[in-house]
Design a protein around this nucleic acid. Sequence first.
DNA 1: GATGAATGAGCGTTCATTCAT
DNA 2: CATGAATGAACGCTCATTCAT
Lengths: 201, 201, 201, 201
Amino acid sequence: MVAESSEKRQKILRAALELIAGHGFHDAPIALIAERAGVGAGTIYRYFEDKDVLIAELFRQLHDKVYTWLMNGYGPDRPLEERFLHLGTALLRYFVANPMDFRFLEQYFNSPYGVAFRRTKLLGTSDNGDLYRRLLEEGVARKVVKDLPLVVLYALATGPLLVVARDHILGFVELSEPLIAQTIQACWDGIKRGVTNENDQ
Amino acid sequence: MVAESSEKRQKILRAALELIAGHGFHDAPIALIAERAGVGAGTIYRYFEDKDVLIAELFRQLHDKVYTWLMNGYGPDRPLEERFLHLGTALLRYFVANPMDFRFLEQYFNSPYGVAFRRTKLLGTSDNGDLYRRLLEEGVARKVVKDLPLVVLYALATGPLLVVARDHILGFVELSEPLIAQTIQACWDGIKRGVTNENDQ
Amino acid sequence: MVAESSEKRQKILRAALELIAGHGFHDAPIALIAERAGVGAGTIYRYFEDKDVLIAELFRQLHDKVYTWLMNGYGPDRPLEERFLHLGTALLRYFVANPMDFRFLEQYFNSPYGVAFRRTKLLGTSDNGDLYRRLLEEGVARKVVKDLPLVVLYALATGPLLVVARDHILGFVELSEPLIAQTIQACWDGIKRGVTNENDQ
Amino acid sequence: MVAESSEKRQKILRAALELIAGHGFHDAPIALIAERAGVGAGTIYRYFEDKDVLIAELFRQLHDKVYTWLMNGYGPDRPLEERFLHLGTALLRYFVANPMDFRFLEQYFNSPYGVAFRRTKLLGTSDNGDLYRRLLEEGVARKVVKDLPLVVLYALATGPLLVVARDHILGFVELSEPLIAQTIQACWDGIKRGVTNENDQ
DNA sequence: GATGAATGAGCGTTCATTCAT
DNA sequence: CATGAATGAACGCTCATTCAT
């Protein structure tokens, strides 16, 4: 096995990212990835068993990158709402700053690979470092967040974010910093338990 | 005669829907669609100019079906919130009842075709029967809904819905009738203008 | 068997001629011929066993038409040269007046069918009404025409004519009546026995 | 490296030539060319962008080969008639010696590609190394050749040659060396200005 | 007789993967 | 280690021919 950090390996992943983000999975033939990476087509198979593995690895890298980004400035001891706003804002900012990463992740989740990952995250028992999951579970336990299944809370917390990120990248809206903040705040409004009416939810 | 409602035409559309919903656009080769529809491969081209047209037509049919479904019981004169809840609930129920339709539409919107459609819907000026759009614009005008760009309101209104529908279909959550209602209510909570705090929004 | 003169049959042959002359053998699918002829595709098979037979029959018709045209005003008792000039001029005029016929015949001769026909004409023993052949054989016997194999004389008599007809139809030259006469005269100059030098040829 | 002279490339061109010469453009599917060349079907596309390019390249090669052959022993300073006889004789010999080349060129000129080439050659103003054209124009200028349009002279010079070459290849005549000479001489007789009779031509 | 919907073999072309160098 | 030429299965699509009506 070749070292994780091989320069060639990174070039290949970068080329794949650019092509897939730019034109979709199916306009990213191996030969083109190789050309853009400046390596031979066969070389790719020295670093990745097949195309599926290459894509899975690309996803893993981006996932790690996003996680690291989210952790940056994350205060685990801050109030729940603040933590929620931090995560959402950071995530949206990340997508605005890294549109290719978003486009790739979108494609990935919209494919059979994505389903498997999602299953692990939502149903898995292992604590796999999912910040959102812990946050939401804590919120429910503390009765700050509506008492809904985790899956639904997830959807409320991230669904609007994904749609708005896509529309920004497609040029349908310009996500300014205040707009980002307002969007995430609205997500929180959807998730948080109503305060005036105890029966609310 | 090749009528709109030709039985073979419908079989072909059905087969395409099943395959695309089940495994994505690219695991639905014409030969397989034909086999599943019980017709020869060449026959498909008597009903559809090419594969793109077949897919576009499938989308059009489903879009019409959804629209009709949403209009069923929709009271244009009812209060805004009620109308919002009606639309969301109906849509989510539809997806729960017609998982293949949902899966297809998801694939479609995640393709170049979908982008074009979205552009028309979000940026177009023509009143093209978009219920959500009119509802949201009215809500903003009446100061019942937060004063955010249409695109963002769209995301808040439909984003969670799409994610939760997918997760239901994938078996990650069981969307009971009450859960559907709670989910849509939460979307409304995200969209509606805060009442107690004037600075809110 | 359907009557030779069936109106539908003629319409089919006409449609085939127009399409083949216009765009070549392979841009003349049966369905298009049927459409242009105003009949059903299946109907064509009531009149012609298959596409090959249709084409062969079209050739036969045109061949007859040309023969009739050449005989028009042909004086079997006129001097050889005069007869030669008559045939060549008539043929060239015919092609100028009926470019589609020429285009079709060109295609036909340039296909496997054409070879069989040519073989019969050049090697066959049956006197099949070939005016040129009799003329040339007579010319050789009378020592007015060079003593060359029939095939070669044929080539000298008709080769330039075919090339010039094609170039006229393609618009590379405008074949006026005097130019036609000059061209055929030049063909005769190539075929006729030299007069001043007995050893000539 | 895909050199001009790659062995596989030549094998593919050779296979295409054999098939097209033998049975025409449309009985030479890529799969058959590949099989005869002893390569995979996909391999052809490494050397040629598509089938059209393969055919165009085949034409270019043969055209060059013919040109080189014609130039062999051509004396630009020899008398016009001698040059004419040299060209015709050489061309006919070439076709007799390379029947497949002839058959291919025949097919090519009888296709849309061929028409474009012909147009350039006949109507183009650039001196594109066309030996025949320069010869004929010179002949007209010197009043050695009949004062006819270039296109017609072309037809008289090459028409018989093409017909006779085809008939030789089809076995309708045996083109011996003397017969070749006589044929070309006859072409010259058709083209040259009559000397005894001033009104001639 | 006449139809045209249905067929499926066959086409040109792409691309993930292999392997000799 | 790295390469890129070679592969062939699979794709979307065409069209001569058949046959139920």
